[in-house]
């Protein structure tokens, strides 16, 4: 019940402590150049991209064309169909994010509020472990284990029952190997869920218990408190998780490239293949060293991808940053 009286806590002894100050100054001098390293690294990457790419290509129609054309014999006639790659990225990352968000909301809610402490903690450890698995492992799992099952069993079954739904029908031949939108979305979802779950769980756990008690004291049930108060207070964290997850999904190359099919097309169904910006970067990197035009396109792809992921990471930063601010305001009296 001891409440800190601000008048009493206000003034600490004002005697200067030179050694501590010196140490602080030294740390500042050492620390500030170190703090610049991430910024310098980012600038270096951007500079490298700008200097080795052809930025005028970004303004040309053949970068934004809707058909891909690359004939090494006629590099002048190349058309890069960037919108198709972007669309493939948006479809796979967007759908994966939708499923991952729903799944990790459910997981995070049960981890924080419903499961007994020991079970919640071990599940949380497990999700964190999953987050550490290299993406190529997911890719191989998807490609070697899931793709045949998708191609031979799951997709024909889905098609036979759900063909009346848009994007659930489509030509059988296009989906034969099992790789494509459906598998890529599944793999990406599995990959993002640990990340988004961890962030959502943290932001739910950070909601002050006093706020939860205020809701319970008004006669709200556990679930009503979760839905109406806890999620609302933590909504910045949830948004941050969504943006970070999207950034990860957009930037993920190896696993997606292995299972997305690789066709440069607007996928006519969820079974058919498409491709992503990251997959293009991954797979054309070696060829790009042989063909200057391909290298320019590749670098410009990389530049746009960098901007997109930076943008979403920025949104995530902003969202989680402001969550802190809201926490302070709501805790004005805490």
């Amino acid at each position: 019940m001891a409440t800190a009286d601000p008048a009493l806590a206000a003034s600490p002894p004002a005697s200067p402590t030179p050694p501590a100050w010196d140490r602080y100054k030294l740390l500042t001098w050492l620390g500030s150049p170190l703090a610049l390293i991430p910024l310098l690294a980012l600038l270096a990457v951007a500079l490298a991209i700008v200097s080795s790419g052809d930025l005028t290509l970004l303004l040309r129609g053949d970068f934004w064309s809707l058909t891909f054309n690359w004939n090494p014999l006629y590099p002048d006639q190349a058309a890069w169909a960037f919108p198709l790659y972007l669309l493939g990225t948006a479809i796979t990352a967007g759908l994966a994010l939708l499923f991952a968000t729903l799944l990790s909301l459910a997981l995070a809610i049960s981890l924080t509020a419903y499961l007994p402490g020991w079970l919640g903690r071990s599940l949380a450890t497990l999700t964190n472990l999953l987050a550490g698995i290299p993406s190529v492992v997911y890719g191989i799992w998807g490609y070697v284990v899931l793709a045949p099952y998708f191609g031979l069993t799951l997709q024909p079954t889905l098609r036979s029952y759900l063909a009346w739904l848009p994007f659930f029908g489509g030509p059988a031949a296009a989906a034969a190997p099992g790789t494509g939108v459906l598998l890529a979305v599944l793999i990406l979802t599995v990959m993002i869920v640990p990340l988004t779950t961890a962030i959502i769980r943290d932001s739910l756990a950070n909601v002050p218990s006093a706020v939860l008690e205020a809701s319970l004291a008004l006669g709200a049930t556990q679930w009503e408190t979760m839905r109406r108060v806890r999620l609302r207070v933590a909504r910045r964290g949830v948004m941050g998780a969504v943006f970070l997850g999207f950034g990860r999904a957009v930037g993920e190359s190896v696993a997606v490239a292995m299972v997305v099919g690789g066709q440069t097309q607007i996928p006519p169904s969820i079974y058919s293949g498409t491709t992503t910006v990251s997959a293009f970067l991954l797979y054309q990197q070696d060829s790009a060293f042989q063909y200057a035009a391909l290298l320019h396109a590749l670098v410009d792809f990389a530049l746009v991808l960098l901007l997109i992921t930076l943008f979403f990471n920025f949104l995530a930063q902003r969202a989680t940053g402001e969550r802190g601010a809201v926490g302070q305001t709501s805790a004005a009296g805490l």
Binding site: N71, P72, L73, P177, G273
Partner: peptide, 23 residues
């Protein structure tokens, strides 16, 4: 044309590496 990377039929599935082609 010919080269290490070319345009393909948009409906043609792809694989990565010789091992991927086999799979």
């Amino acid at each position: 044309g010919y080269g290490t990377s070319v345009t393909w039929l948009s409906s043609s599935p792809s694989a990565s590496g010789n091992a991927g082609m086999v799979t």
